[in-house]
Design a binder for these strands. Structure first.
Length: 340
DNA sequence: AAGTAGATCAACCGCCTGGCG
DNA sequence: ACGCCAGGCGGTTGATCTACT
């Protein structure tokens, strides 16, 4: 037997709220106050579930609810808070006056989760070439096919909402499901084809430095990756893909750089291709693969893959031990300060 | 002009938690 | 200590819209 439903759904209206329903709900709450959500619909004469009434009130009708575009400051704050708190939307919303958890959640899922993730502080690999790609510019190169552009609102919608950028959190720890941005199967397969165990996108590399490697010496060891939100994805793309089907991600500190456009990427790739890799030194097809690669899926995939064989080990959350709530609050305070 | 793909976001669903008897 | 209940929360869905082919 399942849990009893929160309310009797038979005969209840669902879907979008009408202006009349909004008026009824707002008037009732103005007279009787919030609370008693289960009995509210009946008392107010609404054919709605109590939860639906509560949601409508909290997210749209309540005083102080801000509508409209999310500012850059709010955007930044959401990014910071999400990096710390994960998908604890209500907690994040509590730091943004007038914003609701639902709005922030939607904003994150539709805007920020698509933004670029940066992987940094990763030890060097045995054979690597660091390629830092400005994903924003690459992804803007004509892949979008349709859809409402950010900031646009449906004409029929009476409420306006806004867009924001997105952060990435280290999922391990504080929030079990919070960290990985939404990722489609399609995006996932763009990184690895499990059936063929072959990378769908290959990039050649040259051996530029020594560094830790796996015990058998076959695969470069990648340690202590930290996901951070920036404007670029800094990824060391090696030709090889280890057995787990993951791209190596590395970031030798002495090789970091930002490639501003495709020509720079091509130039770098062309110069770093080695005959040993078995890839055409011209590298153009590989460059195309790089440019077509689903970087977001690539980034997300890192968190989706368990840290098997120790190749990828997500860093511990920055807020963890002791009195969690106290530390969390103090860390959030720090985030909200000018310290960062 | 029509069809399609993808973006947006309001609303729903089900689980979790805390209060109370 | 236990069970029930209401409210809260995060994940997901689906309608609607626009850009693109």
């Amino acid at each position: 037997m399942g849990r009893a439903p929160c309310c009797e759904k038979v005969g209840l209206k669902r879907g979008r709220w009408t202006a009349e329903e909004d008026d009824i709900l707002a008037n009732y709450i103005a007279q009787h106050g919030e609370g008693s959500w289960r009995s509210l619909p009946k008392n107010a004469g609404l054919l709605r579930c109590g939860k639906s009434c509560r949601l409508r009130w909290i997210n749209y009708l309540r005083d102080g609810v801000r509508r409209g575009n999310i500012s850059k400051e709010e955007d930044d704050l959401i990014v910071k808070l999400h990096a710390t708190l994960g998908n604890r939307w209500s907690l994040i919303a509590s730091h943004l006056p007038g914003r609701t958890d639902n709005e922030i959640k939607n904003y994150w899922n539709s805007h920020l989760s698509r933004q670029i993730h940066t992987f940094r502080r990763i030890y060097t690999t045995v054979r690597d070439t660091t390629i830092t790609v400005d994903i924003h510019k690459l992804s803007a190169a004509g892949k979008r096919r349709g859809g409402r552009t950010p900031g646009q609102s449906p004409k029929s919608s009476t409420k306006k909402k806004q867009p924001v950028p997105e952060p990435v959190t280290n999922a391990k720890g504080t929030s079990s499901t919070a960290s990985s941005p939404p990722q489609s199967d399609e995006a996932r397969s763009a990184v690895v084809d499990p059936d063929q165990n072959q990378p769908n996108n290959s990039i050649s590399v040259s051996n530029t430095s020594d560094g830790p490697c796996s015990e058998d010496g076959t695969w470069p060891m990648v340690m202590d990756p930290v996901v951070d939100q920036t404007d670029a994805l800094e990824a060391n793309c090696t030709v090889d893909q280890h057995q787990m089907g993951l791209w190596e991600v590395s970031n030798p500190m002495d090789q970091i750089g930002i490639l501003e456009d495709e020509s720079e990427v091509q130039a770098l790739l062309s110069s770093s291709v080695t005959a040993e890799s078995g890839i055409d030194p011209g590298g153009l097809s590989q460059v195309d693969d790089l440019l077509d690669m689903d970087w977001e899926g690539f980034a997300s995939n890192l968190w989706d893959q368990p840290a098997q064989n120790g190749l990828l080990q997500p860093a511990e959350p920055q807020v963890a031990t002791g009195s969690e709530s106290d530390e969390l609050e103090s860390f959030v305070s720090w985030l909200l300060s000018d310290a960062c």
